[in-house]
Nucleic acid binder design. Structure first.
Length: 491
RNA sequence: GGGCCGCUAGCUCAGUAGGUAGAGCACCGCCCUUUUAAGGCGGGUGUGGUUGGUUCGAAUCCAACGCGGCUCACCA
C-alpha cells in the first residue's frame, strides 16, 4: 500500500493546491436529481432543435472516466451507477472555474448541474453550468481501451474492476436481481424467510468438512455452518409450513472455479409435500427467475445453448447409469462395480461402499452429459442420511438433484421425519466417521428430540445460488459471480 | 496438495547468442472553444514478484519461495 509513486504524488500536489483555492477535495453531500442512463433514455428521442427550443436541465454525480481538454473547452464522460454520459465544460459559461479542470483527474468524483444539448456528432451531452469536486482520486485508473485484465487484480481490487469493466457491474446487478426474484417468488408462494445459526455447536445437514472457531466467553468450539437444514426442519416441527433461508454456508474444501469456501445457498422446506412437488416447483422457480432477470428461457452458456423450457427430464440415477452403458446386472455387485469403475479410469478407494462407487461412476460418466436441465432422482440411501425412503424400495430415497450445464444446481428430498430411523441413520454415519470418512455427519440429539415431537411430512431443497447465477450470467468461474472471492493473502 | 503456465512502468503488453529495458494509453509542460482511442510539440516516470546461485556482467540461465491462472483431487 505504500507504493507511492510519482503519479500519486502529482495528485496529492493537486489536492493541496485545491485546498489553497479553498476547495475541499473530499466534499460533503450532493443531491443529484438524475442518473446518466435515465437522462439518455428520457431524452434519447429529443432532437438537437428540440433541446434548444425546450431547454432541459439536470444534475448528476459521478466519476470522471475520460477527459478531452482543449483549454477553453473540454469534454468528459462521467459514470454513475446507471452508466455514463458525456459532459461539456465551456469557459464562456464557467469563467474562471474552467481553470479548475487542470486540477481534476480521471477518477475524480464530481457533482454538476447543466443543460442538455447535442454535439456535432449528435451525442446527448450535458453542458455544465456549475460543478463541484466531491472526491479527489489519488490513484490512476487502468487505461481506457484494454481496461483491467489482470485476473488477480480484478479479484483483489474488485472496486477497480467494477469501475472500469461494465460487464462486471452487469453480472453483479444480475446477481442481485436473481436473488430478489427468488425471494419474490417464494414470498408469493407463501414462504417465510428466517435466519438460523451460522455458528453451530454440531455442524450438520450436509456431508462436508466445517470451519472451526472458538467462543471465548462460553469456552467452547463452534463450527461455521455447512448447511442450515437441521435448524429449518426444527422450524417445521415448530409449526412453520413454508420456510426458507437464503444465506451463506461455509465448507472447508479446496477452492476452484466451482467452489468458494463461503457460498450462498437457498434452502426451503414445504410441509405436506414430497419431492415430486418440488421438481415441478423448481421448474416454476427457475423459469420465473430466468424470465424476470434475463427475459428468456434460452440462454447461452459457454459454447452451448441451454433451454430452460419445462418440463425437464426426470431420470432415476440407476437408469441414468444404465443409459450410459453401465451394466444393470452389476448394480448390486460391489466388487464388479468397482472393477468396472477402475476399467473406466475411475479411482475407487478400497473402503468405499457400493453406493459411493455408483456415485463416483455417475459423476464421471453421467454428469458431464447433463447440459440441459435434468432431474436425477432416487438415490441410494447411504448417500442421503436425512432423506425419506421410497416406499417401493427401502434402499432408495425420495431425492433428486437438478443438473444444468453439468453442474449440480439443486439437491432436494422428501424429508425423513421418523425419529427412530433418523437416529439409526446418524449412528450409521458415526460408523462411517470412525472408519475414516471425515465428512460423515454427526449425531444431533436435539434434532432427534425435535423429530420426536413430530415433524409433518415435508420436502426440502437446497439451491446453490452462485452456480445458478453462473448459469444465468454465462460465467465460467464462481469467482466471477462472487464480489470478493477468497484468495490467499497478498504477499 | 500434485502437474503445467504466468509475474517487466499506474494499465495493456514487447523485449533470448546474457551487456543494468521499450511501445501505446495514462501522466507532466506548452498550444488548441464540438471532442469522444481528439490532435500537435517536448518529457520515461521502473525494487524487472522475492531471495539466493552461476557469470566480468542477469529481466534473460539455475534453485528455492510467494501470488495468480488452468488442470487433477474434494465438494455445492
Amino acid at each position: 500500500m505504500k507504493d507511492i509513486n510519482e503519479l500519486i504524488e502529482q495528485r496529492i500536489k493537486k489536492l493541496e493546491e485545491l485546498r489553497q483555492f479553498g476547495i475541499e477535495p473530499f466534499g460533503g453531500p450532493f443531491y443529484a436529481q438524475d442518473h446518466a442512463s435515465d437522462i439518455l433514455n428520457k431524452f434519447g428521442a429529443y432532437s438537437k432543435e428540440n433541446l434548444e427550443t425546450n431547454p432541459s436541465t439536470c444534475s448528476l454525480a459521478g466519476r470522471i472516466i475520460s477527459m478531452r481538454d482543449f483549454g477553453k473547452a473540454a469534454f468528459a464522460h462521467i459514470q454513475d451507477i446507471t452508466g455514463k454520459i458525456q459532459i461539456y465544460f465551456k469557459r464562456e459559461i464557467l469563467g474562471e472555474k474552467q481553470k479548475l479542470l487542470k486540477k481534476l483527474d480521471i477518477g475524480d468524483i464530481i457533482g454538476l448541474r447543466g443543460r442538455l444539448f447535442r454535439t456535432k456528432t449528435n451525442e446527448l451531452t450535458v453542458e455544465v453550468e456549475d460543478f463541484v469536486l466531491l472526491t479527489k482520486s489519488l490513484r490512476p485508473l487502468p487505461e481506457k481501451w484494454h481496461g483491467l485484465r489482470d485476473i488477480e487484480t480484478r479479484y483483489r481490487q474488485r472496486y477497480v474492476d467494477l469501475i472500469v469493466n461494465p460487464d462486471v457491474r452487469k453480472t453483479f446487478m444480475k446477481r442481485g436481481a436473481i436473488i430478489k426474484a427468488i425471494r419474490d417468488f417464494l414470498e408469493t408462494n407463501g414462504f417465510i424467510e428466517v435466519e438460523t445459526p451460522m455458528m453451530q455447536q454440531i455442524p450438520g445437514g450436509a456431508t462436508a468438512k466445517p470451519f472451526k472457531t472458538h467462543h471465548i466467553a462460553l469456552g467452547i468450539d463452534l463450527y461455521l455452518r455447512i448447511a442450515p437444514e437441521l435448524f429449518l426442519k426444527r422450524l417445521l416441527v415448530g409449526g412453520y409450513e413454508r420456510v426458507y433461508e437464503l444465506n451463506r454456508n461455509f465448507r472447508n474444501e479446496g477452492i476452484s472455479t466451482k467452489h468458494n469456501p463461503e457460498f450462498t445457498m437457498l434452502e426451503f422446506y414445504v410441509a405436506y409435500r414430497d419431492y415430486n412437488f418440488l421438481m415441478s416447483f423448481t421448474e416454476e422457480l427457475i423459469t420465473y427467475v430466468a424470465n424476470k432477470t434475463i427475459g428468456t428461457l434460452k440462454i447461452p452458456y459457454g459454447d452451448t445453448m441451454i433451454d430452460l423450457t419445462p418440463p425437464w427430464p426426470r431420470i432415476p440415477m440407476f437408469d441414468a447409469l444404465i443409459q450410459n452403458n453401465f451394466p444393470s446386472e452389476i448394480l448390486n455387485d460391489r466388487e464388479k462395480a468397482k472393477i468396472w469403475a477402475e476399467e473406466h479410469g475411475i479411482e475407487i478407494k478400497d473402503s468405499v461402499s457400493l453406493s459411493k462407487i455408483l456415485d463416483e461412476i455417475f459423476k464421471e460418466i453421467v454428469e458431464p452429459q447433463l447440459i440441459q436441465p435434468t432431474f436425477i432422482t432416487d438415490y441410494p440411501i447411504e448417500l442421503s442420511p436425512l432423506a425419506k425412503r421410497k416406499s417401493q424400495d427401502s434402499n432408495l430415497v425420495e431425492r433428486f438433484e437438478l443438473f444444468i450445464a453439468s453442474q449440480e444446481i439443486a439437491n432436494a428430498f422428501s424429508e425423513l421425519n421418523d425419529p427412530i430411523d433418523q437416529r439409526e441413520r446418524f449412528l450409521k454415519q458415526i460408523e462411517e466417521k470412525n472408519i475414516g470418512d471425515e465428512e460423515a455427519q454427526n449425531m444431533d440429539e436435539d434434532f432427534i428430540r425435535a423429530l420426536e415431537y413430530g415433524m409433518p411430512p415435508a420436502a426440502g431443497e437446497g439451491i446453490g445460488i452462485d452456480r445458478l447465477v453462473m448459469v444465468l450470467s454465462n460465467s465460467q468461474s464462481i469467482r466471477d459471480v462472487i464480489l470478493f472471492p477468497q484468495l490467499k493473502p497478498e504477499q
